[in-house]
Amino acid sequence: MSRILTIGLSKGYLMKEALHYFETVGIIAEPYNDRQLILWDTTHQVRFLILRPTDVPVYVQQGIVDLGVTGLDMIREEEPDVCVLRDLKFGACRLSVCGDVNRPLSELTHGVRVATKFTNCTQKYFESLGIKVDIIKLYGSVELAAITGLSDFVVDLVATGKTLEENGLKEQITLFDSTAHLVANPVFYSLHFEQIKRFIAK
């Protein structure tokens, strides 16, 4: 098959582990430097695009890339039209409600302000509890919102909990656990099922 396979990867610490996974299925990346946006595999049959983590679902849904590696957190947040093929089991973290260590959970009730990057997940979670909260959309350093009083609680990703601890915050409730997942464009999945099989073999 001469068609080039295009795979979207998240820039950052997940990239090495993603490339390691592709090695296990026989796709070996050529040496690269940190500024490269496009990498090739040693056979030049596979091309990796290095994307911002939040952009991977869009590239996959639009079919610009055939496959992508993205966190379950992004899949739940963006709800892209993609096929989720496999749990890659690295990059483990949790999406959690966090607040000041001295703030009891009982204060998490109607009318509290919750800051987060994950507005969709946050909205759905509080709706399922029947609690009406005011959601503040932020783009980074979400912990600061709870420290400075911009919000009463935050919903954010927690890996080790160290950042929270250093900032006097506590993880209160876990919404869900997340790891990196391999996703495919649905049309690509159907048209190249034979090629897809090796990625989903259990």
């Binding site: 096929c83 989720v84 093929l85 496999r86 749990d87 159907s190």
Partner: peptide, 14 residues
């Protein structure tokens, strides 16, 4: 939902 990862036996396409 497109959650192929959670399907016990993947139905064939061909």
């Amino acid at each position: 939902q497109g959650m192929i990862v959670n399907v016990s036996v993947i139905p064939p396409i061909g």
